[in-house]
Simulated assay, not measured.
Amino acid sequence: MPPKTSAAAPRNRTAQQPAEGSVHAVSPMRLSYLIGQLDRIVSRRLSETLARHGLTLPQYTALSVLRARGRSSNAQIAERSFITPQAANEVVKTMEANGWVMREADPMNRRVVLLSLTKAGHALLGECDAAADHVEGAMLDDMDAETAQKLHALLHACVRNLRAA
Rank of each mutant, 00 (worst) to 15 (best):
M1P: 09
S43C: 12
L115R: 04
A62D: 00
Q37M: 14
D133C: 13
G121A: 02
G70C: 07
A157S: 15
C158D: 15
A131F: 03
P85Q: 00
K119L: 09
L46D: 05
A132S: 12
R30H: 10
L151P: 10
K4Q: 12
V135R: 05
H122L: 10
L115W: 09
Q86M: 00
R44A: 09
G21F: 03
A87G: 01
E48G: 01
R67W: 05
L34G: 11
R103G: 11
L140W: 03
K150N: 14
L114N: 02
S72F: 01
R11W: 03
A157L: 15
V159D: 14
A15C: 00
P18W: 02
L57Q: 01
S27V: 04
L125A: 09
A51E: 06
L114A: 02
N12M: 05
R45D: 15
Q149A: 14
A19S: 02
H122F: 08
L57W: 02
P10T: 05
F82D: 11
H156E: 14
P58I: 02
S73K: 00
M1G: 13
V23P: 07
S32E: 12
L31H: 13
M95L: 14
Q59A: 10
N161M: 13
R13Q: 06
D106M: 06
T5W: 07
A153D: 15
R13T: 10
T84S: 08
A68Y: 13
E96G: 04
R163Q: 12
L38Y: 14
C158A: 15
S64L: 04
R71T: 05
R44D: 04
K93S: 12
E90V: 13
E127A: 14
H24A: 14
L63T: 00
I77Y: 01
S6A: 06
S73D: 07
E20L: 00
